[in-house]
């Protein structure tokens, strides 16, 4: 298994009229070929900005990468000349967006847009490209592909449009696909169809997949590895089956506890108190400390590094062992804050 993508200590800032916002503040992660990394976080956690920086489609200005390294097959994309980078983008790594309707060009037929991938990147003749476009639409299981190739994006349903987006992303058989909330706008039954398709294509093509989402359910279904982001930082990384069984960061734990589940019916849900911080005013120390049930003085001053919790597992919590093992050093008994 080879490391496809390695992001190291990435920093992204946004200059807005309220000052400088550190949208991404030292994020590192790696994706292996054929593996799915889920980046989990709430709105404003920096998960999409990181992906945009990796793809090289960050809106800049106002966004700016201030530090870090994004290595694709060991080559740093950030120092690469734009021309070479463009050859990577689209062909070797591709992106799937949440809102397929706005990501597709409304005035060009779907077949044309798919064919364009081949004519521009591969110099395929128009006729061949057209045939390949239909083939692709078949591959993502759009019924009656030949007839529908001439249709425009708005003539497709939400689920079908997302398939078109997927077709576009996999057109040139990329090694890495970044899917930014690919099913958030879709109904559950359609979401299941689309996630199934993605998983199958990934298996067939041995792609690396970065799945950006806020949905803990989707993550559990498809991911191999997970990185949880909070306020522009990664707070926990782990193999997926480990994290659900025993989270090592209080934020992850809180998220998992707050999902309505069968055994919690009729009881109050656990709610993480307070609100996520604005990127303009990230609390000092651990960014999660004002909302954290474990927080103490050290958390308010000292920013926790990513501690190695177990092989392949890290947590950015000074007191991860308490979170993970449910023990604590200075045991005062009882005290749920009720």
């Amino acid at each position: 298994m080879s490391t496809l993508l390695e992001v190291t200590d990435l920093h992204v800032e946004f200059r807005t009229r309220d000052g400088i916002a550190k949208a991404v503040d030292g994020v590192s992660y790696a994706v292996q070929a054929g593996q799915t990394l889920a980046v989990l976080g709430e709105s404003g956690s920096g998960k999409s900005v990181t992906a945009q920086a990796v793809m090289g489609i960050l809106d800049s200005p106002p966004g700016r990468i201030t530090a870090g390294r994004i290595a694709f097959h060991g080559q740093d994309l950030l120092t690469m000349p734009e021309r070479e980078r463009r050859a990577v983008r689209g062909a070797r790594m591709a992106m799937i967006f949440q809102d397929a309707l706005s990501a597709l060009n409304p005035v060009l037929s779907v077949g044309h847009q798919l064919a364009e991938m081949f004519t521009t990147h591969r110099g395929t003749s128009r006729k061949d490209a057209r045939a390949k476009a239909v083939e692709l639409m078949d591959r993502v299981r759009i019924p009656a592909a030949r007839q529908r190739a001439g249709d425009f994006p708005h003539q497709f349903s939400g689920g079908m449009r997302q398939r078109v987006m997927i077709a576009m992303a996999i057109a040139l058989e990329p090694e890495l696909v970044i899917a930014d909330e690919p099913t958030t706008a879709l109904d559950v039954t359609v979401q299941a169809q689309v996630m199934d398709l993605l998983a199958e294509l990934q298996r067939e093509m041995d792609m690396g997949l970065i799945l950006i989402t806020h949905d803990l359910g989707v993550v559990a279904d498809v991911a191999d590895h997970i990185a949880v982001m909070y306020a522009g930082r990664i707070v926990e990384t782990a193999p997926v089956h480990r994290i659900y069984a025993a989270p090592a960061h209080p934020y992850t734990k809180g998220l998992l506890e707050s999902i309505p589940r069968l055994d919690r019916k009729g009881r109050e849900l656990y709610a993480i108190k307070g609100l996520p911080p604005s990127p303009h005013h990230v609390p000092p120390g651990c960014a999660f400390n004002p909302r954290c049930p474990l927080a103490r003085d050290r958390c308010r001053t000292e920013q926790p590094p990513l501690y190695e919790v177990a092989a392949g597992r890290t947590s950015a919590c000074h007191y991860w062992h308490e979170c993970l093992h449910g023990t604590r050093d200075s045991g005062t008994p009882e005290g749920a804050g009720r």
């Binding site: 039954t189 359609v190 299941a192 993550v219």
Partner: peptide, 23 residues
């Protein structure tokens, strides 16, 4: 059956019905 369950352990024995087509 389509609702993703936040439990990776259940992944293997999920018995999903994938509907075809759109509403």
């Amino acid at each position: 059956s389509a609702v993703p369950v936040p439990d990776p352990a259940a992944r293997a024995d999920r018995d999903r019905i994938i509907l075809t087509g759109d509403v």
